[in-house]
Amino acid sequence: MSWYELASAAGESGHSSDLIFVIPGIGLEVTSVVTTMWVIMGLLILLGWLTTRSMQRLPEGRLQNIMEMVVEALLGLLEQVMDRKRAVQYLPLLGSFFLFIIVSNYSGLIPGAGEIKGFKAPTSHWGVTAGLAIVVFVAVQLNGIRKKGLKYFKHFAEPVMMAPLMIPLNILEEVVKPFSLSLRLAANIYGGEVVLMGLLMAIPYFLPITVLGLEVVFGFIQAFIFTVLAAVYIGSATSEESH
């Protein structure tokens, strides 16, 4: 059963309600989530370019200092999961996940998100988080193979004594990882937005502020969890010792 069928079986339609346009020829639908993704990614690339455009060894600009702090924090986080060499190697991929997810999460807290056409928090949609999780899944397998060669597949059959039982279980585990990764992220962000929306309709004053504050924390935590788990998956797939 594919993810798509799984998701469809969960009760939602395969079509998004807020279609903006369809790319002719291949028929790819562009929804509000997709346009928001473009804007967020564009802004992040712009920010990145502005940061590195005039970098100095002794940073004087505020932007460079802030971004260096972010990068150092992410690197420190990865170093707790893997050795420094690999942390530096995988920082671009995992850091990009973190930056995109946290900005996406917070985009849903901006007034008008979900109501204005073409503006909807991408990470509140399972399709988007599933896409990200598939990238994580592929990155884990590719890096595992690149690091260990065919020996990478050995761990699917471990412990060897119970190989016939373990192979399907391990493969299932490998598939469940991105599944849970994507569902956790989307459900949390979506849930948060629903709660916020409901509260705003019920009691429009004061109370939503506390929930909004909580959502800021949750948005960070979810981006953090996604990044750390992806780091753990990549770390264990590329580690020297068996697991």
Binding site: S16, P122, H125, T129, G131
Partner: peptide
Amino acid sequence: MEFSMYELIWAIIN
């Protein structure tokens, strides 16, 4: 919660 195959594909490409 919505699931769109298009969004999944877009997410990967993007």
